[in-house]
Amino acid sequence: MQAPPLTPSSDVPAPSVANGAADDGPGPIRRCIATGETLEREAMIRYVVGPDGTLVPDLKAILPGRGFWTCARRDAIERAVTRKIFAKAAARAGHEGPLTVPDGLADRIEAMLARRCMDILGLARRAGEVTAGFDKIESQSRKGPPGLLLGASDGAADGKRKLRSISAAAMHSEILTSAELSLALGRENVIHAAFKPGRLAEQFLGEARRLAGFRLLVAANGPELPRAGAQAE
């Protein structure tokens, strides 16, 4: 479950990043430099400082150098930018000199995460691990439950309810738009898709959960939709 958005009150001190959970120490837990929350690495974004002194989001957490982390949420990143927490964390990580933070950092990370979701979806298409189209998904589900149901975030509410009715047990995600689903799957007007159970479905869900921290999933004329990873009702 995602933490509630941060309040912008100026009397909340920036958390220290001296704790070992804040950087690249051993173990799966990291501390957010903006909020102080401790979460598993998979729910966070890692950063390093590039050779030119520019802050670099390291979504795969593989770039060399001592890194620091934020929650995978827009509000946490924007707080780190406005309060210059990135610069302080970079200095503690050993960077000397000014730090250049790219403009629109949260938007850039959102686009990068969306691209990762689309790349996984494209890989699943080439591997025959994903089905598109409601009728095909419904037919396939009779042979076994899907690993993950996908609905376009900008699709009609009735269509989303119809998709969820296919399997009460399947996880579902409504994080990508129809245009993004269509581009990833190489066809037009994709509204519904489904992964087969397996590694690619799990990888997509992990990235979708991070992307959900940047996208408010609200239907055009309806209530807030379940976030990525929510259990279908």
Rank of each mutant, 00 (worst) to 15 (best):
K60V: 12
L63G: 03
C32K: 01
V48N: 07
P26A: 11
K60Q: 15
G36W: 05
A43V: 02
R31A: 12
R30I: 05
A61Q: 06
K60D: 15
A22S: 14
I33Q: 01
I29D: 10
E42P: 03
R46D: 08
L39P: 02
R31M: 07
G25R: 08
D58I: 10
E40R: 14
P64S: 06
P64V: 10
M44P: 05
M44N: 06
I29T: 12
P51C: 03
C32Y: 00
G53H: 01
L59D: 06
L55G: 05
P64K: 10
R31T: 11
L63H: 09
G50F: 11
L55C: 09
D24S: 12
G53Q: 04
L63I: 04
G65Y: 07
K60R: 14
P57E: 07
P28F: 02
I45W: 11
R66I: 03
R46T: 04
A43F: 09
E42H: 13
G53T: 10
I45V: 15
V48W: 06
E37L: 14
G27L: 01
P57H: 06
V49G: 03
E40G: 14
K60F: 11
P28T: 00
G65W: 08
R41C: 09
A61S: 12
R46E: 04
A22D: 01
I29Q: 11
V49H: 09
T38V: 12
I29C: 00
E37A: 14
M44S: 08
T35I: 00
E40V: 12
A43N: 12
L59W: 05
L55K: 05
I45C: 09
D52Q: 13
L59V: 10
A22W: 02
I33D: 00
A34H: 06
A43K: 14
P51H: 12
G50H: 08
G53P: 08
T38F: 01
G50C: 08
P51S: 15
R30V: 01
K60G: 11
A61T: 00
R30E: 01
P26F: 04
I62S: 15
R66Y: 02
A22T: 04
V48M: 07
C32M: 04
I33N: 00
L39V: 09
L39Q: 13
G25Q: 09
Y47T: 06
L55P: 03
P57W: 08
M44V: 09
D24N: 07
P64R: 10
G53C: 07
I33K: 04
L39D: 13
I33F: 00
T35S: 15
E37V: 04
P28Y: 03
E37N: 13
G36M: 04
G65M: 09
D52Y: 09
G25K: 02
E40Q: 12
R41Y: 04
I62Y: 07
I29W: 12
A22Q: 02
P51I: 08
R41M: 11
L63R: 15
I33V: 14
R46V: 08
I33Y: 00
G25E: 10
V56T: 15
